[in-house]
Every structure is written in structure tokens, then in C-alpha cells.
Design a protein around this nucleic acid. Structure first.
Lengths: 161, 161
DNA sequence: GCGGGTTTGTTACAGTGTATCACCGCCAGA
DNA sequence: TCTGGCGGTGATACACTGTAACAAACCCGC
């Protein structure tokens, strides 16, 4: 359930994502406009979480400025469609690695040294959380679980500098 | 493990918190200054999460303005001491309901209708998360788990309007 | 072509957080 | 006692994040 199965599958995920997004939008009768495409591509180009203003800047060219507000709108759309996630602890965005079951719990693993964000899930955690919420009499609508730490690659790198 | 055991114990928690905080600072050889006291009190006065600017405004009086930057510094201090939590999904702060074991996982239950934030924990969830991270080769330093939804009191209230 | 929805551009602004420097109070050490 | 350092605070400025409001462009069916 990780993004890095083939190792460095990340970068080559991008074209895949675009195709997937286009198919999904057609299927749902929604518009996959050039702006939305560009924003998704920008997000998908890195496995680091990127701020909306970073994306705006990256998409801007001399003579063709993309305003942050446009990026936000595109991001809102992409999040609604489940193509992009927001990392609340960073105010930043990452591509969604794979289609989730709607409402499925996702766990974000944020590396504090390389900044990469991996995405995983666990029926175990989810079940435990469900029971805990039940016990507390709390009806959830949305939950976020973000873990900061050191990813395997970075720990490796530190051991052999 | 809830804040609302006695029901409405919240408000009367505040003086308790201040005493606890003062003792804790003395114990650690740190200064529990008037500003820090005021900020903690302001946070503890409500079980809703409050923004730093709200707190600054509340502490300000005609002739005696408290700048947000001062509030942020006090909040940083209080968070380091484990007296206050930050709710990432809201950019807001709540008092810590009880001393946690350092590093113990905390779950925030955020009611979308009344805005109250309850705090709980679960060995179940924590164990599951630990195993998941282990499997992913990820070494955690800090994790946040925030759930938005409807608290029991609000669901009750809706049923009998 | 017309009317109505959606998307985008533009401007302005609100909210959140940090950098920097100056000042104050306290305390250890010469 | 003086002095130098250190932590805390005040104040200003600024960077970053996000939203409101309105106009223009676009698309699509009628």
C-alpha cells in the first residue's frame, strides 16, 4: 500500500495520474480543464507537499501569470474528486497515490528531512479508531492522521553518508 | 478519558489548569510569567479551539494591547510544556485536558456544530499505528490525529429541538 | 442567437505566522 | 557595585495562507 513499491515509481506516476484524472472526470461528467490539468501535473511532479503559492509560481511564466486563487479553486476541485490531498500540518498538497474507497482512512507519512510524503492505510488503525469514536459517542465525518518523522530512505542515507 | 465526565467540568477546569501549570513550571525551573498565565487562562476558558488572534484580542484592553506575536510566543512555550495543543485542521489552540505521557498519542474530536474539541486516546489505535509505521520503515517523531464530526451532545440536541 | 450554468481572471482583503531589533529585568561573576 | 549575558516582552514589518466579490469568457442545450 505504499507509493514507493518499484522505488522511484513516483515521477513516472505523473502521466498516469493525468490519464486517470481525465478518465475519471469524463466518467463523472466533469470538466478536466487545462488549468486543472496543469495544477494536477504540478502537484504530481513532486512527492513533496507543495504550497498553493509554490504551484502558482511554478505555473506562471513571463506574460502568463497564474494567480493563487485560481490554484486554490483547482485544488478544491481536485480534492473533491479525490485526486489530491491536503496536508493540514503543512498547509500543502500532494497527489493522491491511488483511488481510495470513499471515506477510507488514509495515513500520511511526512519525512522531516527529505520532505517526501508517503501515503498508507491500515484497517487495524481504522478499526481501533472506529471503536474509540463509538465509545465516545462521536459521529465522524472526516478525519486526518499525519505522522512526521524519518522515512526509511533518509535513515539509510544518514547511516552511510 | 474524556474531558466531560462530570459534564460541564470544563469551565471549572481553568483554575485547576493554572495551578497545575504553575507547579509544573516551578518544578522544571521555568518562568510562569503573567503573559503566559493570561494566555493559558484565555485558552482554558473555552472548550472551543481559539485562534491566536482571538486570544490576542481578548487579552487586549483599551490602553493595553497584546500583540499576536506575544501570544504566539506564549503558545509555543505552553505547547512545549504540554499545557496546550494545536489543532492543525483549524489553526487553533485548546488547553490540554490532562498530563499525557510524553509521546502518547492523542485523538482530537472536533464537533462541527458546537465547535467543542474533546480529547481522548486509544491504546488500540496507537498500537495499530505503531505496527503500520514499523511495516513502512518509518520512524515517527510526532503524529496528529484529528476527527471532525458531531459530538453526542449535539446529536442529542438535534433530535429534540 | 439566447439564457443559464460553470470556469477563469482580477482585485482586494482577511487570517495566520515569523523575522528582527530594541528594551527591560534579573542574576552570576569579576 | 558594575557589567555582561540571558530570557522574556514590545513593536514594527513582513511573508505566507486563504477567501470574497465581481466581471469576463466559455460551453452547451434550446
Amino acid at each position: 500500500m505504499h507509493r514507493h513499491e518499484g522505488h522511484d515509481a513516483c515521477r513516472s506516476d505523473a502521466p498516469d495520474m493525468l490519464a486517470r484524472a481525465e478518465a475519471l472526470c469524463r466518467e463523472r461528467g466533469l470538466q478536466f480543464t487545462p488549468l486543472r490539468r496543469d495544477v494536477l501535473e504540478a502537484v504530481a511532479e513532486s512527492d513533496k507537499a507543495q504550497g498553493a503559492y509554490d504551484i502558482a509560481e511554478r505555473l506562471s511564466a513571463p506574460g502568463k501569470r497564474v494567480a493563487p486563487v485560481s490554484v486554490y479553486r483547482a485544488l478544491d476541485f481536485l480534492m473533491e474528486q479525490g485526486l489530491v490531498h491536503r496536508i493540514a500540518s503543512r498547509n500543502a498538497f500532494i497527489p493522491c497515490a491511488h483511488g481510495h474507497a470513499p471515506g477510507e482512512g488514509v495515513i500520511f507519512l511526512i519525512c522531516r528531512s527529505c520532505g517526501a510524503v508517503d501515503e498508507t492505510s491500515s484497517a487495524d488503525v481504522e478499526g481501533g479508531l472506529e471503536r474509540t469514536l463509538e465509545r465516545a459517542g462521536f459521529t465522524p465525518t472526516h478525519s486526518i492522521l499525519e505522522v512526521e518523522g524519518d522515512c526509511g530512505a533518509c535513515r539509510e542515507r544518514e547511516r552511510t553518508p
